[in-house]
Design a protein around this nucleic acid. Sequence first.
DNA 1: GTAATTTGACCTTC
DNA 2: GAAGGTCAAATTAC
Length: 341
Amino acid sequence: MESVDENGGSRLVVTELGYIKELVRQLDVNLGGCPDHCKRLAAQIFALTERSIGMIRSGHYDCRKRSAAGLDSPPFSATPSPLSDVSGMPFHNNKKRKTMEKRKHQVRVSSEGGGAETPVDDGHSWRKYGQKDILGAKHPRGYYRCTHRKSQGCAATKQVQRADEDPALFDVIYHGEHTCVHKTVATAAAAMAQPAEENPDARRHLQNLSTSLTVNTEGLTATAGHQGCGTTTSFCFSSQAAGVLTTPQEHYPFSMPSTPENCFGQRASLSTSLEPSPVTSDSNRFSMNPFQAEWRAQSEYDEVVSALVAAGTMPALAMEMEEETAFSLDEFEFDVSSFLA
DNA sequence: GTAATTTGACCTTC
DNA sequence: GAAGGTCAAATTAC
């Protein structure tokens, strides 16, 4: 892999994740199209994910800075697991709720069909445990926890509040991680037996979410396609891009299409430079170290991408990947800001 | 009968 | 003391 300084290496990881996110969008666009191309896209996503993981493992996150900054955490094992770090887990013995460093992830989603009382299904099953009128808000906030809290000890929670300015939109704040069996993956096998074209509800669901889902990255600039390309910019790949990229130029396999089918009729090139990302002072940023983010990225992508490749075209999985990719972007952005500042 | 939702009370933080 | 978050009994839905 190319030699880069710590900052550059970290930015590369952020950039890679941005590309992965954009790839998932491409997958979304092409869901009704050629299954072979969907499989290729999935393979590209998989390869980019693998390489991002490799970048982190190769040391582009400099642990020395962690020590210098007094951020030493317990020694990481060869297979770091966020589950061993209670700081990221809610409901541990620390009774100070507000000061708990829980994962927090905010998205804005539309309601099902625009007028429903709840936002679109996010792939998990939730049980409502409270509702509260919030000062200054027109609509009450609903409190939900994972249905599997009791059976599997899953500590994930979310808050749902209808947006004041647009009742069709909901602000959803996720806390904690799902430790339960993932519904999406658990149902993937059943869904695989049903092609996308035979599942209009799933496709409509995905399209609805993809057009409405906005991930709150609060100043994140590493999102692919942001460099003047606009949100409609599409990436194009050479068919041999995955898994064989070693030079800086090859590191960004986004180029003019080598074949018409690779491009969906949209062409764009992507700048490989990144502007410095503004560091926000948001105290609500979740706290994961890069190794936790790595572990999470690996487990999630392995799980979802494998199912996606097997299925060829899977709206629900594509939706989840887009969300998870954006989530990982948030994590890395914060990690980079914290560790390299 | 079981599971989910509602809602007032309680707890924690600021 | 106010506001947000959670608990748990009562109620409702399946």
